[in-house]
Design a protein around this nucleic acid. Structure first.
Lengths: 122, 122
DNA sequence: CAAGCATATGCTCTTTGGAGTATATGAAGA
DNA sequence: TCTTCATATACTCCAAAGAGCATATGCTTG
């Protein structure tokens, strides 16, 4: 049993993302998820278990049913990881330009020719 | 060759996330990534290939080196997917409260008929 | 052209994890 | 109690993918 998968591995699975998507609107029982996603019940339960152990969802008991609802903490982790990259899709095109311009990340290897960028000149 | 992996599968790989992390600060050559991450060169190249084909990075040629830099579009996709969930980590506590209120988190070891629930579930 | 560096690719091996199926648990109602 | 419903778990099978290693490609310089 490995319970320490990264949140990224968890949401890498399409069915799990689908389940999370369903739970955005409202909590759902296993059966409801099963029907909406047209997925075999054991599959649903299994994915829910993974999601639960990873902290993405939590469940409460209602008679024989289990109602699953979203727990946002885990997804916040993804959001946090994304943060440093955000500055890129605002204005980075120019910054990139500057980079290309001054990049001389030379390494302790002998290099004579530089200025060899720009263009797929074969 | 399958090139149509979801962006989520791409970033599920720890080494790839590490590479992306490196590229946030500046573009890097394969060798630089190799050294900083202490990862065998073929591994770096392979991951870079995956990242490139998925649109996470792009490369330019500099003599025998290849300089890789970030391409934010793919990560924006993740960001977009995350959007619907964002409202959860602002105000959702109240909804949660209501739920916790009408059920018992205790273990229903031996329980007789309880309220049959009036659920909003159809 | 030959040599050397930087990077890419091909191949095998191994592990992981989802699919599918069968079955177990547990609660509710007759 | 027995039956039925809702959900969970156990188990096998299979494919995908990363690790590791060897090698190919390609550019540069002597």
């Amino acid at each position: 049993m490995k319970s320490v998968e990264s949140v990224f591995e968890i949401i890498a699975e399409p069915n799990r993302r689908a389940i999370l998507g369903l739970l955005v609107s409202a909590q759902q029982s296993v059966g409801e998820i099963e029907r909406q996603l047209r997925m075999p019940q054991p599959a649903v339960s299994k994915h829910l278990r993974v999601l639960r152990e990873a902290g993405f969802v939590e469940s409460t008991v209602d008679a024989q049913r289990r109602l699953y609802r979203l727990k946002p903490e885990a997804l916040q982790e993804v959001d946090a990881w994304l943060a440093p990259f955000r500055r890129f899709w605002s204005a980075h095109v120019d910054a990139l330009e500057r980079h290309l311009d001054r990049m001389d990340r030379s390494i302790p290897t002998k290099r004579k020719t530089r200025k060899r960028r720009q263009g797929p000149n074969r």
